[in-house]
Amino acid sequence: MTKLNMVKALNLALFQEMERDPDVVILGEDVGVDGGVFRVTDDLQRKFGSQRVIDSPLAEAAIIGTGVGMALYGLRPVCEIQFSGFAFQCFHQIENHVARYRLRSQGRFACSMVIRMPYGGGVRALEHHTESEEQFYAHIPGLKMVIPSGPRNARALLAAAIRDPDPVVFFESKALYHAAKEEVPPESETFPIGRAQVAREGGDLTLVAYGAMLRVAREAADVLQAEDGVAAEVLDLLTISPLDRETIVASVAKTGRAVVVHEAPRSFGPGAEIAASIMEGAFLRLEAPVRRVAAHDVSFVGFAREKANVPDVARVVAAARETLAF
C-alpha cells in the first residue's frame, strides 16, 4: 500500500487504464507536456505519446465535440475541462450530443467517455474557478455524474468511469487535490458507479454529503458525538446521478432525520432532489423536515468572502441541532 494524495491517485487511475486499454486517450488543454494545470495527467504524455495524450487547441466545445467523434469510432476518450466554470462553452455538446447519442442512434453508437473537471471552492481562486455546478449535469438524462471524496475512491471511481459504457461527468474537488493522503492499493480497483457509501454509521441523524463536503459532514458528526452525544450517520454519495436513493432512504428510515450538505447553490440543487426522494421513500419515518446546508443562491462571492458562503462544520452542526430539536 502506498499513501497518495488525490492528484496522484487520479494519475495512477489514468496510467493503469491507459495501460489496460489502448483505446483510452486523453485530450484537453495543457494535459500533455504540462501534465494539466493540476498535474493530474503528469508524465502520461511521456509514457504514452502525444497521439494518446493530446494537447488540444484552446476550445472547450471542440474538446468535447471531437471526444464525441472519437467515442463514436470506438475509442475511450477522457476529456479534461480545465475548470468546471469554463464548461458552459461545451455545455451544448454535452447536453445535445454526449448525453443523447445512444438514444438518438437507438443503441448503434454511444459516447463511452469521461469528462473530467475540477470544481468547487477553497483554493482562493478567481471567478469561474470556484463554483460548483454538478446540478446541471445531474439533471441531464443519459449522463452519469460522479464526485469522489478522497484519493482511494477517486482512483477507483475514475477507473470505473473510464470502463463505463455511458458518458460520465467526473468532478474533482480542487480543495481535495492535495488535502490528504490515503492508502491506495497498487493493483487496479473500481468502485461501482451509482452506489453511495456509509462513511460513518449512526442511528440519530443522517448527514448526506459528497466531494469536499464529506469532510465537513464527518467533522460535524464528530462535534455532535462529542458535544451532544448524538450518533450521526454520514453518507458519501460518490455518484450524484443516478442517485442511490435506496441507501439514502434506508438510512433516513432508520434515523428519521436528515441534513443534506453541498457546495452548489441551494435552490434547485442536488439537496432538493435528495429531500424529495426522502419524502417519497421515508415520509412516515421522518421526525423532522429535511434540511439543506448549501451555498447561498449567489453566483459568485470572491474568495475573500467565500468562507461565509460555502458550508462549514458550524453550519452543519447548527442545522443538525435544529433538526434534532424539532
Binding site: G69, M70, A71, L72, N96
Partner: peptide, 20 residues
C-alpha cells in the same frame, strides 16, 4: 439538428481513424 455541432464529431472520427 443543432447547427454546426456535428462538425467537431467529424474531426474526432477522423482522429480516431488515424489513431487506429
Amino acid at each position: 439538428v443543432p447547427v454546426a455541432t456535428q462538425l467537431p464529431h467529424a474531426v474526432g472520427l477522423a482522429y480516431a481513424a488515424q489513431y487506429r
